Amino acid sequence: MVGTIDLDEEMLQGQADIWRFIYAFADSMALKSVVELRIANIIHSHGGAVTLSQIASCINNGGSRTPPDINCLSRIMRLLVRRKVFAVQHPSDGGEPLYDLTHSSKWILHDSKLTLAPQIMAQTHPWLMAPWHCFSRCVKEGGVAFKKAHGSEIWDFASEKPEFNGLFNNAMACTAKIASSAIVMGYKEGLSRIGSLVNVGGGTGGLISEIVKANPHIKGINSDLPHVVSTVPEYPGVCHIGDDMFHGIPNGDAIIIKVL
Rank of each mutant, 00 (worst) to 15 (best):
V2E: 14
V2W: 12
G3I: 06
T4V: 10
I5D: 05
D8C: 10
Q13V: 08
G14W: 02
D17A: 14
D17C: 09
I18M: 13
W19L: 14
R20I: 10
A26C: 10
A30Y: 03
L31F: 09
S33V: 06
V34E: 06
E36N: 10
L37T: 14
R38H: 12
A40N: 03
I42S: 03
I42Y: 02
I43K: 04
V50W: 06
S53D: 15
Q54F: 06
Q54M: 09
S57H: 05
N61A: 15
G62R: 10
G62S: 08
G62M: 11
R65S: 11
P67K: 15
P68G: 08
P68A: 10
D69K: 13
C72G: 13
R75G: 08
I76L: 07
M77E: 00
V81T: 13
R83D: 01
F86I: 04
F86N: 05
A87L: 14
Q89P: 03
S92M: 09
G95Y: 00
P97Y: 04
P97V: 02
Y99N: 01
S104W: 08
W107Q: 10
W107V: 05
K113A: 05
T115Q: 06
P118C: 05
P118Y: 02
M121E: 11
Q123D: 06
H125P: 01
M129V: 03
H133P: 00
S136E: 08
C138F: 00
G143H: 00
G143M: 02
V144W: 02
K147F: 01
A149Y: 01
F157I: 04
S159W: 01
E160S: 13
K161E: 06
P162Y: 08
G166V: 07
F168N: 03
A173M: 12
K177T: 12
A179D: 06
A182F: 15
M185G: 15
G186K: 11
Y187T: 13
K188C: 13
G190E: 14
L191F: 08
R193P: 04
I194F: 10
G195M: 02
G195W: 03
V198E: 11
I208T: 08
I208K: 11
S209G: 06
E210D: 12
V212Q: 12
V212Y: 14
N215A: 15
P216W: 14
G220C: 04
V229P: 00
P233I: 13
P233F: 13
P233E: 12
E234A: 11
Y235M: 01
P236V: 07
P236D: 13
F246R: 05
G248T: 00
I255E: 08
K258W: 01
K258D: 00
K258F: 00
L260H: 07
